[in-house]
Amino acid sequence: MPVCPSGASSHTVKNGHIHNGKQRFKCHDCGRQFIEQRRPASRSPYLLSLITRPLRLPVYEWLKSW
Rank of each mutant, 00 (worst) to 15 (best):
P2Q: 03
V3T: 05
C4T: 02
C4R: 01
P5E: 01
P5N: 02
P5D: 01
S6K: 14
G7S: 12
A8V: 03
A8H: 10
A8L: 08
S9F: 02
S10C: 05
K14E: 09
K14M: 07
K14G: 09
N15R: 05
G16N: 00
I18Y: 01
H19D: 15
H19L: 07
K22H: 12
K22I: 04
R24A: 07
R24P: 01
F25A: 00
F25R: 01
K26W: 00
K26M: 06
K26I: 08
K26S: 04
C27S: 02
H28Y: 12
D29G: 03
D29W: 04
F34I: 09
F34P: 00
I35D: 03
I35M: 06
E36P: 03
Q37M: 08
Q37W: 04
Q37L: 09
R38P: 03
R39E: 15
P40Y: 04
P40R: 04
R43P: 07
S44W: 00
L47D: 08
L48G: 05
L50P: 00
T52S: 12
R53G: 12
P54S: 11
L55M: 13
R56G: 12
R56I: 15
Y60P: 04
Y60G: 07
W62Y: 15
W62D: 10
W62V: 11
L63I: 14
K64N: 11
K64Q: 13
K64D: 11
S65K: 12
S65E: 12
